[in-house]
Design a protein around this nucleic acid. Sequence first.
RNA 1: GCGCCCUUAGCCCAGUUGGAUAGAGCGCCUGGCUACGAACCAGGAGGUCGCAGGUUCGAGUCCUGCAGGGCGCGCCA
Length: 672
Amino acid sequence: MILPVHDLVRERITAALERQYALGPDAMPAIVIDYPPNRELGDLALPLAFELARRLRKAPALIAEELAAALGSIPGIARVEATKGYLNFFLDRRAFLGERLGVGAPPLAARPTPGAVKTVVEHTAINPNKAAHIGHLRNSALGDTLVRALRFRGVPVEVQNYIDDTGVQVADVVVGFRQIERQDLAGIRAIADSTRFDFYCWDLYARVADWYEADKSRLQVRLDTLHDIEHGGNEVADIAAFISDRIVRCHLLTMARMNVQYDLLAWEGDILRLHFWARAFEILKEKGAVFLQSQGRLAGCWVMPIEDEAAPAAEEGEAPAADEDDSREKVIVRSNGTVTYVGKDMAYQFWKFGVLGKDFNYRVFSQRADGEPVWGTCQEAAAGEPAHPPFGGAGAVVNVIDVRQSYLQKLLKQALSAIGHQEEADRSVHFSYEMVSLTHNTARQMGYILSPEDAARPFVEVSGRKGLGVKADDLLDVLVKKAAEEVVKRNAELSADEVRRIAEAIAVAAVRYFMIRFSRGKVIAFDIDEALNFEGESGPYLQYAVVRANNIFQKLRDREGIGEAEFLSPLSTTRTEELTGGAHGHDLWALVLEAARLDEVVDQAVRTLEFSVLAKYAFGLAQMFNAFYHRFPILNEERDDARRWRAGAVSYFRNQLTGALNLMGIPVPPRM
RNA sequence: GCGCCCUUAGCCCAGUUGGAUAGAGCGCCUGGCUACGAACCAGGAGGUCGCAGGUUCGAGUCCUGCAGGGCGCGCCA
């Protein structure tokens, strides 16, 4: 962990600037900490002198030298050099690695995360009417990694999964069962008990689309069904409830394969039945956030004015374009009195922040693999569990939803602001990401016939098409099968069960790494062959690096009967030539320093919601280890001091990369 | 029409609040297994960072304009 060192350096620099140049708190520049291009130049680099040159009317090189002299000794810092205007810090290598291996002085206390308020993260939110597809995997991989990263930083997190059980998607499957298959609840239950129900509905949903297509008048059936579902208390509603319950359970199993878990499932039906919207509507009206439009094409609708932040009010010279009469309004309640999708979302968002003044009832929906309960909202107090944990009431909310929802997410912030909760609006974050498509090659492999329109584009958009797409479980199954073949090739003695478990872990790594490695604003084209290629930059590559490191200590136990901790404990008194001097001291140290940057990288990833930096960091670290491993013998090294320092570096690297993988939800198999 | 995003090697992508010589992977070429396992490593070829201005000691990174591409802007969800 490097951030405590950063903090100490900043603290000392600030003090030195005060002493040397009488800079007050207001004049203090931001202290940037970089890394020099190589370890011979130092371990931390501060371009501070360039920043101060103009203000102090001095050459950067001179300022750097003065600061280096003024700093005095800093615990953990061996020396400070001024080079070409940079202020370069050299860490005390023995103390640094010793602390992190627990064989020397206790490490600097990690700083508390500033503003660590309870954070609600909502992700996944798959329509509960068919199997999860490949696009959902990007959502849950990003969302779950965010959750893990926040918890790593000490932020209390509540993971919610929103279940839209009252929308047209569920209604369509209900229509399919009743109109096409002529099934009643009992018949559907029998199907659910005897098939992969989410797969069954996947196909049925496609058939319903065709059924509508064949006779457009049938769309009236959909409307009637939707109406029945919203009303409740009839068999149609019971069927819808049954279907969404069963499909959600399928989704939870799929996500569990990916090591994704939830604390609470929030059901849209409960938001309706508990009249969350009615309460939110009262608040919106009370605060004047919405008004009843009396004229124009939106007459009779309750609307919210849309702020156009593109027209800055700062320009006072010109009158705002109010006379254009295009001041935009978003319909919240239709003229027929029903609430729109946005309205329901506003009520849910208000509840998340604890500003709605109402709460759900809660029941245990299912059990996670780790034994913890997954809670679900429910309507009836009688059906609820009185002793439930507190839900909602967050200080910050992150909604993980694809970029197409940007407009609506912006409206949620505006609504919070409009009802006088500016702080909640500021802490209402849309974690957006681009879509997942397929490469042409993969689309063909999945049996698509490419239209001329598709062929003209660089990739094939499929997740929006009814009944098309790649099912998440199918993808995982293919990956597991392929991984198992590779494992068997290399470990002929393993049992089928062991191979299966290892292959599952590899498949998870392949998918989760692929979903994380691209920056979120980029459309990614999923390619089966690339995902199946376990060479190069991939999740399995990372796992392999850790497995290799673990094997070293396994060999140590097998050959010499010595445990890892015992082997490393003499390091506090071992001579440090291997670590500090010699021709290759920098190689070993570079690995240690890079491994230490995990906390800094996580910090950056959370700040920018950009988890590709975590993926790339982990990959670079693994590469660095593989090169080191190849170049330097560890157990086979003859000099005892070199042997132990190398093992120490490997041990620390292994701990840190394992931690990075854990943040990405990637497990480390015992062998590969 | 308005708004947001993308444009870096043949392909696919990293590049931190602006910092030292623009980096990986794939593909191509050359070389390396004596198990701390080669799902690996070493080396090579490959660059006008979309274009044009600007700010700065310093710009792939910030600002303005332009071009190409994607997405959004429903009394759908």
